[in-house]
Write a protein that binds this DNA or RNA. Structure first.
Lengths: 143, 143
DNA sequence: TTTCTAATTTGTAATTATTACAAATTTATA
DNA sequence: TATAAATTTGTAATAATTACAAATTAGAAA
């Protein structure tokens, strides 16, 4: 479990000035590593912070991304998800339950493509979709 | 270069009934392997087919996807792109010029994740972002 | 060819995630 | 305490995509 102090330190490390809203959002991201959407963050915090605005969630996520504290995860067409683990890694999304798991990868920093030449890689994004064990077992009712 | 006959045969292979619009769209996808958005497809075909509707482009892309003739490529948050190469492969998007190149990958069909168990992979999506050689050279004016 | 039916296309309106923006509030500073 | 700066909020705008019903086209039957 992470304390409020942990959250404060984490934000300090990324040069993010704390505020009640920012703390609540960062705290949520640290405690619930489920790669939530802006809407899910808002939905989770609204009950305990009814004055929270969805715009603030978007503003805050943009700030967090600019400061390098979170990364955008573009795994489904519908909406952007946010990942507090900013190290290069892959994702697995279960098509049954929607869970998104982190997967380690070995990454590279350049590719030479025939006919095109060298490509300098600054971002690596890898994701899989499929079924986790539990959903694969009940698969009959899914597909 | 592909002929109209090639396009017709390709559609037949995927059980897609031809129509003037579908032929034009498929033909465009086969001739321009640039992973276009729905809007780009519409923009390219509108001049030669002014009665074309954007809804038809979306409808057609959905049909093509359902029949397995194209795949959705979710590489940027803004809009979905379409890829006529349905084999598993990666993409590189140049942050300078926006070009998207195909990259070969070796793929897997399952992962065992500690604490979660086996994950059955049905889709692999890998993409990189960065700069192609040309853009890297002019990088000063980009970043 | 003409008629009828089914499939396809089209245009418009609805939906939804995200962003723009300006007013209101809060926080920090003098 | 008064003032300025930063932050939050609500509403409206934007833009990709989808829903839907009318119009058109294509195909089959007569």
């Amino acid at each position: 479990m992470n304390t409020i102090q942990d959250t404060r330190e984490y934000m300090q490390r990324y040069d993010i000035k704390p505020s009640v809203q920012r703390m609540a959002i960062m705290d949520y991201l640290m405690a619930n590593r489920v790669h939530p959407t802006a809407d899910e963050i808002y939905g989770a915090l609204y009950p305990v912070m009814p004055t929270l605005s969805k715009t603030t969630v978007y503003n805050t996520m943009r700030l967090f991304m600019e400061q390098g504290a979170v990364k955008a995860l573009v795994i489904d067409e519908k909406n952007v998800r946010f990942d507090i683990d900013t190290s290069d890694h892959a994702h697995f999304m279960c098509l049954g339950c929607g869970c998104v798991y982190d997967i380690p990868i070995e990454n590279r920093d350049a590719i030479v493509l025939e006919g095109v030449g060298e490509l300098i890689i600054t971002e690596t994004h890898l994701y899989y979709k499929g079924y986790c064990k539990k959903c694969a077992e009940e698969k009959g009712k899914i597909i």
